[in-house]
């Protein structure tokens, strides 16, 4: 087991040498690269990475360029998880047979968007977690298929306007509720499952390091504010992320061994969900008189979820 990187404060963290490069083609203000930087900088160990098809993959591997300073593989939309699980299984086998050229313990990390995680790669991801590979899967959850022009995914929340669930005269946009991916992954019995947000960097680093130290498959759901599809100005990425965590739309918590739930961030002042919705163009239509009841429902849903999380934390189940 390699030594864990000691990160006490942001000044110390800023001495990290990034292994993710600029001149990738992600939109200005994209939260994806903020998350990727925080994940990669959380360790000094060797990294073996994969990415599912999505914004992150198409923007960081534009032939003839790569933006990754570590081993990185892309195969298909659905199999970022199995690609990295295969690498992990190979590493384990070579190590057992004593055929590794250098004795190293790399970390295996797969990145996927919410489309690749909640929908298309779900079966593959589930298989990896069942087999118990020693890997980390990071879902960059921007609640939409941003790469292909903003189609809804099963992570898209109620009321959001997406190109395949547009808001208009007859519809208020997406009608299905967001899938609770963390509960599903925890139900696999994974040793560590957590929700993170890039604006709470310290919480995120701690969770990523806990994930690296865990023995078995780790699922990280990272909230990734999308300036293009959520429709806000690029400089507001962190402000929107703050609203998301402070309004408890994205509560930050972790589930250990599939059962024990801990809430890791409690906002000092809880922001009304209405403010979070009002800051984004994709919810603009909810503020019409006929759809205002949806905002009330949103608040009730978020409150109920927060209440549920608190009760679970208290009962330690």
């Amino acid at each position: 087991m390699s030594e864990m990187k000691n990160i006490k404060n942001l000044k110390e963290f800023s001495t990290s040498a990034d292994r993710f490069e600029g001149a990738n083609l992600l939109c200005p203000g994209c939260a994806h690269s903020i998350i990727v930087r925080e994940v990669l900088n959380a360790t000094n160990d060797d990294l073996i990475l994969s990415a599912a098809t999505g914004c992150l993959e198409v923007c960081t591997a534009v032939y003839p360029y790569t933006s990754w300073d570590a081993s990185w593989i892309h195969i298909g939309f659905e199999n970022a998880s199995t690609a990295i699980a295969g690498a992990e299984a190979m590493h384990k086998a070579l190590k057992r047979k004593g055929r590794l050229k250098q004795e190293r313990d790399p970390k295996f990390v797969a990145f996927g968007g919410d489309g690749a995680t909640y929908d298309i790669g779900f079966q593959w991801l589930s298989g990896c977690f069942e087999r118990g590979h020693n890997m980390m899967y990071v879902c960059l959850d921007n609640e939409v298929y941003a790469n292909t022009g903003g189609q809804r995914s099963s992570s898209t929340p109620i009321g959001a306007s997406a190109t395949t669930s547009p808001a208009g005269r007859v519809s208020y946009g997406e009608k299905m509720n967001k899938k609770d991916m963390l509960a599903i992954m925890a139900a696999h019995g994974a040793p560590y499952v957590a929700q993170v947000a890039p604006n709470k960097w310290k919480d995120m680093i701690k969770k990523i390091q806990t994930g690296f130290a865990a023995n078995g498959p780790v699922y990280i759901n990272a909230m990734s504010a999308c300036t293009t599809e959520w429709k806000f100005l690029p400089e507001d990425t962190i402000a929107i992320s703050d609203m998301a965590t402070d309004s408890l739309v994205f509560p930050l918590y972790e589930i250990i061994d599939g059962t024990k739930l801990n809430i890791t961030y409690r906002p000092k002042t809880v922001v009304p969900v209405e403010e979070y919705l009002a800051a984004q163009g994709r919810f603009k239509h909810l503020f019409k008189d006929e759809y205002k009841y949806l905002i009330k429902e949103w608040q009730e849903r978020v409150d109920a979820k927060w209440d549920y999380l608190q009760r679970r934390e208290e009962a330690s189940v």
Partner: peptide, 30 residues
């Protein structure tokens, strides 16, 4: 600025912010 820069364009060395990498900055304003 260093932690929230999406484009690795804030150059920090020895805990000091020393400048901006203008080749990789996309001007997002974060």
């Amino acid at each position: 600025c260093w932690i929230y820069c999406p484009d690795i364009s804030i150059i920090s060395r020895d805990k000091k912010m020393i400048g901006i990498d203008m080749d990789h900055c996309k001007g997002c304003g974060i």
